[in-house]
């Protein structure tokens, strides 16, 4: 009987859990992979720090995401609207199938990889990723 109740509860809460903000889990994972003392200030600084790309233009996270992470950004080339990065901004689906930020580990890693390479010309270290999430967490 107890098992049935637990199972029932698990089923009820599974969708809610699936939507949970995964930043704390990501931070502990990055810690396990060698990061330490994640620093929101370092993440914030890096957010707007500009790097010269191969094409000669200056790039930073803010190029597409805006320096104010509570506002929606815009893709530099395509102009596509990019939802605000701050978890405090209520989720609005811009397109069918959109899901809230920080709810899918695979997606977080995919975009860290793509965007670090675009901005810095290399992948980010676990320390940098941790610093970024530490900064974004409370925005």
């Amino acid at each position: 009987m107890k098992k049935v109740v637990i199972l029932g509860l698990a089923i009820c809460f599974a969708p809610a859990l699936a939507q949970a903000n995964l930043i704390p889990e990501m931070l502990s994972q990055y810690e396990a992979e060698g990061g330490s003392n994640f620093d929101a200030a370092a993440g914030k600084k890096m957010w707007s720090q500009e790097f010269a790309s191969e094409d000669g233009d200056m790039r930073s996270c803010a190029t597409c995401h805006n320096s104010d992470v509570r506002t929606a950004g815009k893709h530099k080339k395509t102009g596509k609207v990019i939802a605000a990065m701050a978890p405090s901004v209520p989720f609005v689906a811009l397109e069918e199938g959109d899901e809230p930020r920080y709810t899918d580990v695979k997606k977080i890693e995919k975009w860290f990889k793509r965007n670090c390479k675009w901005t810095y010309g290399r992948e980010c270290t676990v320390q940098e990723k941790g610093d970024f999430l530490m900064f974004l967490k409370d925005q």
């Binding site: 995919k110 793509r114 390479k117």
Partner: peptide
Amino acid sequence: LSDHFGEVADLE
């Protein structure tokens, strides 16, 4: 995919 028309589109 790493240079997808000038964009980084890396996938797992």
